[in-house]
Nucleic acid binder design. Structure first.
Lengths: 145, 145
DNA sequence: AGCTAAATTGGAATTATTCTAATTCCTGAA
DNA sequence: TTCAGGAATTAGAATAATTCCAATTTAGCT
């Protein structure tokens, strides 16, 4: 049973890939689907497990390939926290991350426009920032412990 | 010829370690010294090379151990940019980092107090941030290319 | 000086990720 | 519709950064 995307996310998916001349394969759709389906900032490993439930033959290399492709198409974001395995996130709005050092859980943190523009203004003259990463770590919700 | 710290940084070093009941060994002093001596955000590998020039017998494990200790004492900061090797920085003031994707160089970026407090205010109710990481990547100074 | 815990050492182990070469799959031109 | 050629996937090997481990050395007390 291949993973089924909703028709709206399938459109997003198809056009993002076609725009880059890439093929919307079932593996890519599945990887995208599992990331959209459970927005818990899964690692490549988590994603591999979930994808295998839908497409049992899928290899690790394919999961990594698909993730790279999806990131390249702007469909998902990579979230790197310290040295821990990379996590993936379908939230494309500008936002920060908070990691609870006790539970390891990662939460999205909204960035309001005012703060966002002040942050962007930190970049010195002559530098051009394409990417910004903001993350916090500390103790999270009491329910995490 | 063991690395010699200036007397003021030697004081900082000694008291930071003593405060935690740790010993100010020559390897630790040397690792701290090379990080202070060339503030170019070196990797563990870079640090290893530099330390070996002063204390030839030093092992990789020791460099990692020392770095962990120094970070734990608050003498240096770890800088993680994406998946690249961890870098180390003796600048303890609140600051962000900018990585030039062409040259790989990392620059410190000051954060003014106003922006800093707005960033801290992003952390939701009930969460307690101990750490904040802000980094940019993009094209840096023309001289880098 | 001698004891004890802390630190260092070299090398093996681990872990996430990337690479490689072979195979399979799509797509579009004939 | 077939088939050629590029794109994607696959399994497994390779890599790179970091951590672990057991043995040895060192430093700071008594």
């Amino acid at each position: 049973m291949p993973y089924s995307l909703t028709s709206s996310s399938k459109d997003t998916f198809n056009s993002a890939l076609r725009e880059k001349g890439l093929r919307p394969t079932k593996q890519r759709a599945c990887v995208y689907g599992v990331i959209l389906g459970k927005r818990d900032h899964p690692t490549a490993d988590d994603i591999y497990d979930r994808v295998k439930r839908h497409l049992p033959g899928t290899s690790f290399a394919t999961v990594y390939n698909c993730l790279e492709t999806l990131v390249g198409c702007g469909l998902v974001r990579q979230v790197n926290m310290d040295r821990s395995p990379t996590r993936y996130c379908p939230n494309l709005t500008p936002h920060a991350h908070f990691r609870c050092t006790q539970s390891g859980k990662i939460y999205d943190v909204e960035i309001d426009n005012n703060t966002l523009s002040l942050i962007q203004a930190l970049v010195p003259e002559g530098f051009e920032a394409e990417n910004l990463d903001l993350s916090f770590s500390g103790t999270g919700k009491p329910s995490d412990n």
